[in-house]
Design a binder for these strands. Structure first.
Lengths: 148, 148
DNA sequence: GAATTCGCAATCATCATGACTACGGATTGG
DNA sequence: CCAATCCGTAGTCATGATGATTGCGAATTC
């Protein structure tokens, strides 16, 4: 199926959780972080970049530099992370119908409206959890899955 | 845009709406459908295949063959279509963390649980609409978007 | 001044998606 | 029976998104 192509959200949650688990106040280098996420340092920096701009994390260059949380883990909702990294991505892809077809135009409007509804639903669900929850393993699977 | 690649759900909604709009009982060929969706006939058949297996549409070969709805448009929820085509796709991609890292394993479990929750949320939202709604343009944007 | 680490640009490999072609099978109509 | 139409499916190809990797510069610490 549509394989997990964009993993930035997953990596970000991992990184934030890792940082939240660091009790000593020392920053963590991209190198160390890349080891845990099995990614490379450049990618780590690219993922953390938007989070830094949003004020969630700090970075410092230099010998004992690295990354650390800028706010409490309990104050970072997963919805925030989602919006920063993948919130602009459509949940389902749109297609380009024949512009001359009346049905096509109507369907396109419908799909756009749907997209926003679904994106809202995703954000609402992610709003319920924070990085602290992920650190504590407090994110449980739903009682019953609607799958199939 | 992470998800922009897989447009099968969008195409399927388009195709079903097109079929629902056909008042005369004659089947529609893949060729005609491909014109409206701006795709090619083979792709149309590939998208409609799972819907046929689920009993939502029928197809007939031969001279006056083609596709038609097998059930009432009001009985086809968008969630059904979603599950058949993209329901198995993760909403956000998972990454492959270092299996030796305790944080990594924990985060992975959390993300898997999250994935199911979010997938449920999407399905629940799509459950609210049917192909008839898309035909009537009855899918409105939400009152306020949670974007940004 | 040397070592460390972030910041960023540029290139490359991989993979999902969909377009396209080709051929076979089923059905209709003469 | 034969031709035309249309689905069914396999196979190949182009495109685009994603992430790996390298290289170089700037900032900071010691």
């Amino acid at each position: 199926m549509a394989r997990p192509t964009n993993t930035q959200f997953a990596v970000a949650v991992h990184l934030l959780t890792y940082l939240a688990g660091r009790t000593d106040g020392t920053p963590v280098s991209s190198d160390e972080l890349s080891g845990s996420t099995n990614a490379n340092p450049v990618h780590v920096r690219r993922v953390l970049g938007p989070l830094r701009e949003a004020g969630l994390v700090r970075s410092r260059p230099g010998v004992h530099g690295g990354w650390e949380l800028a706010v409490d883990a309990g104050d970072i909702t997963l919805a925030q992370v989602w919006r920063l990294l993948q919130g602009a991505d459509p949940v389902f892809g749109l297609h380009g119908p024949d512009p001359e077809c009346a049905v096509g135009r109507s369907v396109q409007q419908t799909l756009t409206a749907l997209e926003r509804r679904v994106a809202d639903a995703v954000a609402t669900e992610l709003e319920r959890f924070t990085v602290r929850d992920t650190l504590n393993g407090a994110v449980a699977a739903p009682a019953q899955s609607a799958d199939v």
